[in-house]
Amino acid sequence: MQELLGIPAPLLFGQLLIGLINGAFYALLSLGLAVIFGVLNVINFAHGALYMLGAFMAWLLLTYLGIGYWPALILSPLIVGAAGIVIERTMLSRLYELDHLYGLLFTFGLALIIEGTFINFYGVSGQPYAPPKMLTGGYNLGFMFLPTYRAWVIVASLLVCFGTWLLIERTRLGSYLRAAVERPDLVRAFGINVPLMMTLTYGFAVALAGFAGVLAAPIYTVSPIMGQNLIIVVFAIVVIGGLGSILGSIVTGLGIGLIEGLTRTFYPEASSTVIFVIMAIVLIIRPHGLFGRSRE
């Protein structure tokens, strides 16, 4: 058997693949957090709960309505996005004028409500969700086995991340959005409906979390607590990358996923803490994060 750095090659690449998959989810979620923070100035603590909601919607659609993976991949994010829009319009929008901390506390409460409700109905154990027929099986790459579904997750999430980056950095709508981040009052004076843009931004970013949830459903089991530890890891990633740039949060998400995978191979005991250690080191060397700029 081939060996690399004293580790059997298939094991090393297997862990790197898991790292890359985790990284893809980190990237999708931290991207959403960065977009929401950029436009609404709110740290969305409910992001993990909404990711869980996305996965659960896919599971509920399949179990009760017989709707399969592909329609769910569209429907579930739409439902989560719609829920996000209702939340933003009815409650979150009242908090913009206040200290940012209230936004965090509000979304924290929201996360408790969503997760608590699902725990009551479905318990903390997971529900299995099979990947679609088309994506079962895998490829033998010679040095490792690549399951088709995992390859699809990486491709899909990278496409969505890149699409979001294009949308914000390269389109007219995106330029309005970036302008509204800098000077909402001026953008409003030009006749652009800024509150509507904020609502849609929240809906869109939350739908991204829902999309990530559906992608995750066949890999991890669908459980009410699948989002609650993930969100804290994503927070650490956001601190490492800084909330300044979208590309930055994508790169950081993937990079951290890979580092986590490597740690799991070489020193498994530290695999759950390595991200936080990196965060502490980054804070000491570059307090505003790798891609961040100083901003309150």
Binding site: M91, L105, F106, F108, G109, L110, A111, L112, I113, I114, E115, G116, T117, I119, N120
Partner: peptide, 10 residues
């Protein structure tokens, strides 16, 4: 209880 705490928070 978790849900009640969440509602109180909100």
């Amino acid at each position: 209880v978790t849900v009640v705490m969440g509602v109180i928070f909100v």
